[in-house]
């Protein structure tokens, strides 16, 4: 089957099938990612205009079954410990399903704020792993919950800035090497906080543009292999800086499409590899930013349907490519 178009029906069927693999060992070994996986699946479906392919009530009940009443946060799976990663996914899912009213918002806000460290960075949970990913998650979640005003913005920005490297990119902690995934989270956090002024746009734009390899895919760091997930992270940051034209979007589109499994659906990290919901989500999210025909607009900052973010008055000044009409 030719790989020059998006197999929407196959991908919808693939995402729907994910919950039916309960006799599969891998399904259980990845239980710690279940909440994220639902967010990835739901967002991909929404962008493909098939949001209703998964049962709404069932999904909301699952999310609520992961609520940890002691911590005031969500785990990824019933009985798993609460974490900021699964808490953001839960909030994003409930936002997309218009069911945020189910959440005890003040308690979640308290949980998130309690994770901020004196340096300004956020920990992922009470065990204290720190990462600029968690700063982004905190900023994103507080913003969706309408409680950003409770955040110590200066301290948050200060730590992100301390992770900035001379190449314009960001690492996950102070001293760490720039990495596309961290660039995405840091740029998006700064965008939400209206502090893009601290970014060296020329330098970072250059670094991001140089992520594109001759086969069209983007890598996460210099002299590394291309990957669909990195492609999205780079693209999101470029969209936020209004610099998507700095790379070859046709080649990137072709690369993402070539990583599809045209028979059983799903998108892989690169052509010919095993698909998973994570890369399926980031592949479709990337295609949306590239103006691929027939898709919904994705907000690159929140990584959620753009219409939803706009309706909440949270849209920042990013620029995706205009939506093309099918040839």
């Amino acid at each position: 089957m030719p790989l020059d178009k998006l197999y929407v029906d196959k991908h919808v069927a693939y995402i729907k099938s994910l919950g039916e693999n309960k006799d599969d060992l891998t399904y259980h070994l990845t239980a710690h990612l279940r909440m994220n996986a639902i967010y990835w699946g739901l967002t991909a479906l929404s962008i493909m205009k098939h949001k209703d392919a998964l049962d709404r009530d069932e999904m909301i009940e699952y999310v609520m079954s992961c609520w940890d009443d002691e911590a005031g946060a969500f785990g990824p799976h019933p009985d798993h410990d609460p974490h900021i990663l699964s808490t953001l996914s839960a909030i994003q899912i409930l936002t997309m399903q218009d069911a945020l009213y189910r959440v005890d918002v003040p308690r979640v806000v308290k949980f998130i704020l309690s994770l901020q460290q004196p340096s300004g960075v956020f920990a992922g949970d009470s065990f204290g792993e720190i990462d600029t990913r968690f700063s982004y998650i905190a900023v994103n979640a507080l913003s969706l919950l309408g409680h950003l005003h409770e955040l110590d913005v200066d301290r948050t920005v200060q730590y992100i800035l301390a992770c900035k490297n001379y190449d314009g990119g960001f690492g996950n902690v102070i001293g760490a090497e720039s990495h596309s995934g961290q660039v995405f989270v840091c740029v998006a956090a700064l965008a939400i906080l209206d502090r893009l002024d601290v970014i060296d746009e020329e330098m970072l734009g250059w670094w991001l543009a140089e992520r594109q390899l001759p086969n069209g895919g983007l890598n996460g760091r210099p002299e590394k292999l291309e990957d669909v997930c990195y492609s999205f992270w780079v693209l999101s940051a470029l969209a936020t800086l209004k610099k998507i034209p700095w790379i070859d979007s046709d080649k990137l589109t072709a690369f993402i499409l070539s990583a599809q499994d045209p028979e059983n659906g799903g998108i892989a990290d690169r052509p010919g590899d095993m698909v998973d919901v994570f890369h399926t989500h980031f592949g479709i999210a990337g295609l949306s930013l590239l103006g691929y025909p027939g898709l919904e607009d994705l907000d690159p900052v929140y990584c959620m349907p753009a219409s939803l973010i706009e309706a909440r008055g949270l849209r920042k000044g990013w620029e995706a490519l205009p939506r093309r009409t099918a040839a």
Binding site: D227, A268, D269, G272, D273, M274, D276
Partner: peptide, 9 residues
């Protein structure tokens, strides 16, 4: 999954 080749089953 990173770097796992797809096999047709």
């Amino acid at each position: 999954m990173h770097g796992t080749r797809r096999t047709r089953e």
